[in-house]
Design a protein around this nucleic acid. Sequence first.
DNA 1: ATGTGTTCCTGTCCGC
DNA 2: TGCGGACAGGAACACA
Length: 298
Amino acid sequence: MPELPEVETVRRGLEPALLGRRVLWARLFRPDLRWPLPERFAERLEGARVRALRRRSKYLLIDLEAPGGDPAARPETWMAHLGMSGRFVVSDDAGERLPGAFALGPNAAAARRAAHDHLMLATEAGRVTYNDARRFGAMDLWPTADLDAHPALARLGPEPLSDAFSARALGEALAGRRSPIKAALLDQRIVAGLGNIYVCEALWRSRIAPERAGGAISAAEIRRLAAAVKAVLEAAIAAGGSSLRDYRRADGELGYFQHAFAVYGRESEACKRPRCGGEIARLVQSGRSSFYCPRCQR
DNA sequence: ATGTGTTCCTGTCCGC
DNA sequence: TGCGGACAGGAACACA
């Protein structure tokens, strides 16, 4: 899936179409994403105003205000996870816009949906389509006040770009772990939001070999690693994420961080570390490819 | 408890 | 050009 930087980029891309806007209509075409969508999903979006767009780990959190601002209604949050191939695309019906109104109604918009478009909605500011070929993505509606109790969020580790994620916290989470550091960093309970790409890149930046046991990483290495995780995520967000295969920004543009990869997808190419001279290798760990430089990552 | 392998689904790419 | 197999950004689950 899109990892944290890609989800953050999508969040920012959705803001112009959603933030402060009212959902004029919503249509659901497939209720069976990774888990079944809640009852009356599209109907519950309709009429709601979007109060905020947040992100927790790789989850988009879209806070809604009930239609009419009904004070008795419990505000809900629309949670979305993009899985491996989920995409949100904003379109403005360029060239079709009617004066003072958003052009395509639900039936006309639905009639022109593309393969794997599973959800479509419109606000006063644009149309948003969720497309997900593999359907590993997921959505839910959950009371905003109890969001931390959602099963998908309850056990997540610290946000890597927050102060809660530090060398000290990482060291404590890794203590005694015998699993490889690669697997540990993919474990969302240790740190939330990393995926295969950014784990590979962070390990390269901190010169740590992916097979090392998590509990065997020294304090100095952990300091490098925590800093590398933050640095690589920040750089990727600044670049609009990485575009491989399915991922696109919500505005349809490509992110460009993939050009900055030091190891991911670079098997048998030269290590980018000055004067290293190593060659990038690939190894499979718990079913996932790990890319690393055997020469400078120890 | 902790760690690894399998599974969900579809698309793409590579070698024959 | 067709076909089979490997592989893909995630993560819940079953099992050792």
